[in-house]
């Protein structure tokens, strides 16, 4: 009684929120907004622009989920998290889903009790060096000083790589990408290592991107994906199948431009099931029939999201690579919608 009163007062004052009950889906619907954990700022994946709008690849996933569940892609509260706070924020119910370049690893899945609901970006750790060093392979980096961003799996992969190849190095742990960049450009480290996508994004922002090369070695597997709390499978299903819907939409040729037309006139039964004109998939998730249609309408399919945020026409300029559809030789493979 005492606690409910204090928390009632706090809730009225807008400083606390009842959340994180057993059924996240109901909580999100009742609240009317989705709380989504993102990075504190990584261009292309999640960063606020000059107007304070969050933009990026991970952000689009959050917005797609909000569109599917709440019917409004803007009904998202973005909670910036650091490497340190992200897991607590999720475990304590401060956020409903964490979409923050988080690598799917065994211990995070099993020991920390989270559910990775899929992979939205297949990444791997790479190295960037100035061209002037004349290094062509990461194995030539004996004795080099390496800038790393802390709080990621990067540190562990780096230690493993140099240990396996029996060469020495000096790590320089840096908190933020911007500072790591500054150190690297000033020559305080010879090498900058992080996920290859991040390296490409960083290099794109340099004054002279041509003076720096990415080494061919990719030293780790980094399947990045959104995650939710263990033990709430209904909510996990919603997020998982929203992501799958985006991927499947690209495979099936459904885009934000033609989704309306497809929904009314398609004769492909899978598209019809996806867009809710046939079958009861939405109802099975506890959503309405148009859930996937809204997600695709507002955010576009996976390919469109990729192209607008990190694709080759953006300053970040990433090729699809592993993140192409399986039909194009990539790893993206959505389970069928039936």
């Amino acid at each position: 009684m005492n606690k409910s009163m204090i928390f009632g007062a706090l809730t009225v004052a807008g400083l606390a929120a009842g959340a994180a009950g057993a059924a996240t889906l109901d909580d999100v619907k009742a609240r009317g907004t989705l709380n989504c954990g993102v990075t504190t700022g990584l261009i292309g994946f999640a960063a606020p622009d000059a107007n304070g709008e969050w933009k990026g690849f991970d952000v689009a996933v959050c917005r797609a989920v909000a569109a599917a569940v709440l019917g409004d892609a803007t009904a998202v509260e973005f909670v910036p998290t650091t490497g340190k706070t992200r897991f607590t924020a999720l475990a304590s119910g401060e956020i409903d889903v964490l979409a923050r370049n988080t690598t799917w690893t065994f211990s995070r899945d099993v020991d920390l009790k989270f559910d990775f609901i899929g992979v939205n970006y297949y990444d791997g750790q790479g190295f960037m060096v100035p061209k002037a060093l004349g290094v062509s392979s990461a194995k030539d980096l004996d004795g080099a000083t390496v800038c790393i961003q802390t709080g990621t799996t990067t540190e562990l992969n780096l230690a493993d790589f140099f240990r396996v190849n029996n060469i020495s190095y000096e790590p320089v742990p840096i908190e933020t990408n911007a500072e790591a960049q500054q150190q690297y450009l000033a020559g305080a480290c010879d090498v900058y290592t992080t996920d290859a996508s991040g390296l490409a994004a960083t290099r794109a922002a340099f004054e002279n991107p041509g003076d720096h090369v990415l080494l061919p070695e990719i030293v780790s597997k980094e399947p990045l994906g959104p995650l939710v709390r263990h033990g709430d499978s209904e909510w996990g299903d919603v997020v998982r199948w929203t992501l799958n819907a985006l991927i499947a939409a690209e495979e099936l040729g459904v885009s934000s431009a033609n989704v309306g037309e497809m929904a009314s006139s398609t004769n492909n039964p899978e598209i019809a099931r996806l867009l809710g004109t046939e079958g009861e998939l939405g109802a099975m998730l506890g959503l309405d029939a148009d859930w996937a249609k809204r997600a695709i309408e507002t955010q576009g399919n996976y390919g469109e999201i990729f192209a607008t945020n990190i694709g080759e026409d953006t300053p970040i300029g990433l090729a699809r690579g592993l993140n192409a559809q399986w039909t194009d030789g990539g790893l993206l493979y959505s389970p069928p919608f039936r």
């Binding site: 490497g83 340190k84 897991f87 709080g151």
Partner: peptide, 11 residues
């Protein structure tokens, strides 16, 4: 309080 906390999640 930094890397160990991040890697093990034992906040």
């Amino acid at each position: 309080g930094g890397i160990t906390l991040n890697q093990t999640g034992r906040a």
